[in-house]
Design a protein around this nucleic acid. Structure first.
Lengths: 336, 336
DNA sequence: CTGAAAGCGCTAACAT
DNA sequence: ATGTTAGCGCTTTCAG
C-alpha cells in the first residue's frame, strides 16, 4: 500500500556481519571512525556494507548514544521576511554541523508548551526559540525542559536560565537616533509592533535616550499588534490622512523592516515620500529593493547563529547582546 | 557541563510500573488510547506517571512501531516569499496531523542526495520536495529511497514514481494571457526564472498557446538564472534603458511574483509604471502591498498541502495538477 | 583486535 | 484484563 515491494533498508548490521564473516559488533566499529580495528577487516566490512547497500538505522543508534542530532526550532511568524532569512541561515549552519532542524511552527497553533514537550520526548538535543514572542507559559516550560539546552535567539529575555543571543537593541536605537538627527529632523517618532516585546522596548529606550541627549524629549509612538506590513500601513495611512502636513513627524524609526515598508507604502499613497525620514531594522533582502531603498540596521546574524549552534553542540558561553551595523540607503534622507 | 544537575527525563516506564504496582507493559497500554485495560488500573498508572513526571521516550517507541512521525521537507530557496508561505502552511498542516517537519535546506548546500539519504536513515516517514528545483541526481535518488513515500509539491516532474501535486500551470498561463488580451495589449512578453524548470516551461506554453489563438504568434522572452527580485530587476532595467518606449513590450507575464516585483521596480525607476501590464504568479503576501498591487495567479495552496500530507499519512491518491485563481489587483492595467 | 553480554525504552503478539 | 516473551537495530562495556 505504501511502497513498491522491495525494502532496501531492511539490511541490518547483522546481515553485513554475516557477509563479511565477522560479528555484528565489529561492523559497528568499522563504521565508527575512532575505533580500533584492523584495516583489513575494516575494508572487508565496508565492502560488504557497500554491496548490501547497508544504511545504519540512526534511530537505533540514537537510542544507544542518547544523541539524535535533532534540534527543535520554534518559530513564530514564518511569513515575516526576517524570520525566513534567519531560518535559512540557521538551518544551513545546523546542517553544516551535522544537526537537523525540527521546525515547530507556533504561528497559528499557539500551544507552545505542548510542542516543545513533544520535542523533548522526541529526544531532541536542544531547543532554539528563533525570534519568537515569548509568552508567560514559556517560563513554566523552561523549568520542565532541563534535559536539553535552550537558546533564545534574536529576542531578549530577563530569565537567567536559558541562553540569550540577541542584538544590542539599546545601542542600535541610539545609533539610529544619531543618523536621524544628522538629517536635521525635528519631530521624531517610534513605530513598534506589539507593546511589551523586548525588542520594542529596548530599541525605543535607546532611541529616546539618545534624542534626549540632544534636547529632544518628546517623541510620538505608533504601534501595531502584529509585525505586519499591512497593519502598519493602515495605522500610518490613517495618521497621514488625519494629520496636516505641517504637523506631521519628519523622522520615524520602525522596530522592524516590515513596519517600515508599511510606513513607506502609506507615504507613497499620500505622496510625501521624502518628507519623512524612515529607518527600519533587520535588513531583510527586500530592504534593498529599488521601490524602498530602506535604510536599516542589520543585526549580527551570522555571529548570533554561530553562538546559538555552538550551545547546541554542548558549549556553554555566556548570554550575549551583540552589535550589528547600519545599512545606509536612501529612505532616511529628507528631500528639499 | 550541559544542564543543571537534575535529569527529570530519566523516569522510565519501569519506574511508573513499579510505583503503580503493575507491569511495564500495562503502563504502555494505559497510555495507548485504543487498548483494553480496566479503568481503575489505568487511572492508577496515569496517576503514577503524573507523580513521577513520566514522559515516554518517543525514540524508543518509534524503534518499535517503525513510525517516527518525522517528515523530511526539502526546501530550495528559503528567502523566497512564496517558499516561506508554503513552509508556514505545510508545517502547520503536518503538526495538526501529529507530524513534524525536519527541514533540509538545500539552498547553499547542494548535496541533496546526501541529505535525503540521511533523512531516510533517520527513519523519516516521508519526504516532501517543496517547490525545489529538481536536478538530475534526483532521479537516482528516488530509486534509492523506496522505503518511504516521496511527494513533489509545487513543481512538476515527468517521473511516474513519486507523487506530484502542483498547479495546472498550462491552464493558468492561458488564463493570464486572456486577462492581458482584455487590456488591449499587443506586444507580449514572458519573464521566467531558470530555463528548463517545469513551471517556467508549462506556464509559458499555456500563455503562448492562448495568445496564438488570438493571432499573436510572437512573444519576447526574458529570463534570469535565479528566482531573485534583484536579478530580475537588473535584467529588466537594462531592457528599459536599451529600448525605446515605442518599441517596448506592453504586457508581461512573470513566472513568479519575485520576478514581477523586480520588473515593477525597474518600471518605477524608468517612470513607466502604467505603460506595461504586469502579472505575476504565486500571490505572495507582498503582492497586496500598496507599492505593487500586483495582479497575480494564486495556486491552490491549501488543497495541494492537504493532498501532500495525506500521502505522508499513507494514502495513495493519483498525482494531480490543480487550478488556482486569478487575484486581480492593479498592475495588469494599462494607463491612459 | 575481536567476540559476547547487556541494555537503550518501548511495543506487538502471544499466553494466561 | 494483565503478564510474558521477544525484539526493534544499534552501541557500550567488558572478556578474551
Amino acid at each position: 500500500m505504501k511502497q513498491s515491494s522491495s525494502k532496501p533498508s531492511k539490511v541490518t548490521s547483522n546481515d553485513v556481519a554475516e557477509r563479511a564473516g565477522v560479528s555484528r559488533w565489529t561492523v559497528s566499529r568499522a563504521l565508527t571512525p575512532g575505533k580500533s580495528i584492523s584495516e583489513s577487516v575494516r575494508q572487508r566490512v565496508l565492502a560488504a556494507a557497500e554491496e548490501l547497500g547497508y544504511k545504519p538505522n540512526l534511530l537505533a543508534r540514537s537510542l544507544s548514544t542518547q544523541k539524535t542530532g535533532l534540534i527543535a526550532v520554534v518559530v513564530d511568524c514564518f511569513i515575516n521576511h526576517n524570520v525566513s532569512k534567519l531560518m535559512d541561515r540557521l538551518t544551513a549552519e545546523l546542517q553544516s554541523q551535522g544537526l537537523r532542524a525540527v521546525v515547530l511552527n507556533v504561528t497559528h497553533y499557539q500551544r507552545v508548551t505542548e510542542l516543545v514537550e513533544h520535542a523533548d520526548q522526541l529526544q531532541c538535543d536542544g531547543v532554539i526559540f528563533l525570534g519568537a514572542t515569548l509568552t508567560d507559559d514559556f517560563v513554566s516550560l523552561t523549568s520542565k525542559i532541563q534535559r536539553i539546552p535552550i537558546v533564545i535567539a534574536f529576542r531578549d529575555c530577563d530569565l537567567p536560565e536559558p541562553f540569550v543571543f540577541t542584538t544590542e537593541d539599546y545601542a542600535a536605537g541610539g545609533e539610529i537616533a544619531e543618523l536621524l538627527l544628522q538629517q536635521k529632523a525635528s519631530r521624531f517618532a517610534y513605530f513598534g509592533g506589539p507593546p511589551g516585546v523586548s525588542t520594542f522596548v529596548r530599541r525605543q529606550e535607546g532611541f529616546e535616550a539618545k534624542l534626549k541627549q540632544s534636547g529632544i524629549s518628546q517623541t510620538q509612538t505608533f504601534h501595531c499588534d502584529n509585525y505586519d506590513q499591512f497593519l502598519a500601513y493602515s495605522v500610518f495611512e490613517r495618521y497621514l490622512a488625519d494629520t496636516d502636513k505641517s504637523k506631521r513627524v519628519d523622522a520615524i524609526f520602525c522596530e522592524n523592516d516590515a513596519i517600515a515598508f508599511g510606513v513607506l507604502d502609506a507615504m507613497r499613497v499620500h505622496e510625501c515620500l521624502q518628507e519623512i525620514a524612515v529607518v527600519g531594522f533587520d535588513d531583510v533582502p527586500y530592504a534593498a529593493s529599488k521601490s524602498y531603498q530602506l535604510t536599516t540596521y542589520a543585526p549580527p546574524v551570522d555571529t548570533i547563529i554561530k553562538e546559538t549552534v555552538a550551545v547546541m553542540l554542548g558549549e556553554s558561553p555566556q548570554s550575549k547582546r551583540m552589535t550589528g551595523n547600519m545599512v545606509v540607503r536612501a529612505s532616511h534622507l529628507l528631500g528639499q
